[in-house]
Design a protein around this nucleic acid. Structure first.
Length: 273
DNA sequence: ACTATGCCCTGGGTGC
DNA sequence: TGCACCCAGGGCATAG
């Protein structure tokens, strides 16, 4: 599950390898047609060929490749997607869905077991990410913003954290981790949290994302960095997929529940509503 | 406006 | 060993 730290790790790996390079050829494999959201697959392949990559940015979980014709190639990896830099003749991964060959004998492969990844080619990146708010590591995601986002919502705080309009880039792993760090029960109604607890939660979101970024992301299953390697953060998490194990803080057994349609992990003793 | 649910996908795990 | 079933969940569509 590439979330913000994973996507940012990929961006940092790929930026020096892609920026300044020209796309020689793009190939969307048979069976992966849904990848291309704004064009028919063959049309997208033709349009991208010959374009130079001028920048590789990120917003939330989206990667944004700025092209020399002013268009932006917007990539989202969803749950099982990865982008791996490899030689043009390197054998394809079992779940390779598309490949981008560069002008220097190298390529980037999109591997995606579940075929949920998307590519948009747009003039304005906002077109490709219409329901996306401030990046969770950016300045616009402030304590005041989180407080305002909670004030008008009666749903569980975890649902607010997962809302990409509130904190773009936070996904299931880091929502659970942030709630544990802030000692807040993820089921707590958002509009019932005190100002002080929201401040603590905001700091916890930043802390968990930055720590994971420092560990090059969490490879619970399919996530790979831009060079095909695994992250290290999955062995550093406090609650995510640690159900049955003792809480690091109080020793109580971590439990797993279902909340907003997602597996949710928490310590029932030291996380309070 | 808000909230809840189903859908897309496929491999891995579980139980019989 | 086989096989049916369930689970994983990001973002969108749809319904209430």
């Amino acid at each position: 599950m590439p979330e913000l730290p994973e996507v940012e790790t990929i961006r940092r790996d790929l930026a020096p390898l892609l920026v300044g390079r020209t796309v020689a050829r793009v190939r969307i494999h048979s069976g992966a047609e849904r990848l291309a959201q704004t064009h028919a697959p063959r049309a997208l392949e033709r349009t991208l060929a010959g374009r130079r990559v001028e920048a590789l940015d990120r917003h939330g979980k989206y990667l944004l490749a700025g092209l020399d014709d002013g268009q932006t190639w917007v990539l989202h990896l969803r749950m099982t997607g990865s982008l791996v830099h490899a030689g043009i003749d390197a054998p394809g991964h079992r779940f390779e869905r598309a490949r981008v060959d560069l002008d220097n004998g190298m390529s980037v492969r999109l591997n995606d077991m579940r075929k949920f990844a998307t590519w948009h080619l747009v003039g304005d990146p906002a077109e490709a990410m219409p329901r996306t708010g401030p990046d969770a590591l950016g300045e616009a995601f402030s304590v005041a913003w989180l407080r305002a986002s909670c004030a008008r919502r009666s749903v569980a705080i975890k649902a607010v954290l997962l809302d990409q309009q509130v904190a773009a880039g936070v996904g299931n792993i880091y929502a659970d981790e942030a709630c544990w760090i802030a000692r807040i029960d993820p089921r707590a109604p958002a509009n019932g949290l005190s100002s002080q607890r929201i401040q603590r939660l905001h700091a916890a979101v930043r802390e968990t994302l930055e720590e994971s970024l420092g560990n090059r992301g969490a490879s619970f299953s399919d996530y790979r960095d831009g060079l095909g390697g695994e992250g290290m953060h999955h062995i550093r998490v406090h609650v995510f997929r640690r159900d049955g194990q003792p809480c690091e803080r109080c020793g109580q057994e971590i439990i797993k529940i279902r909340l907003v349609g997602r597996g949710t992990h928490l310590c029932p003793r030291c996380q309070r509503t």
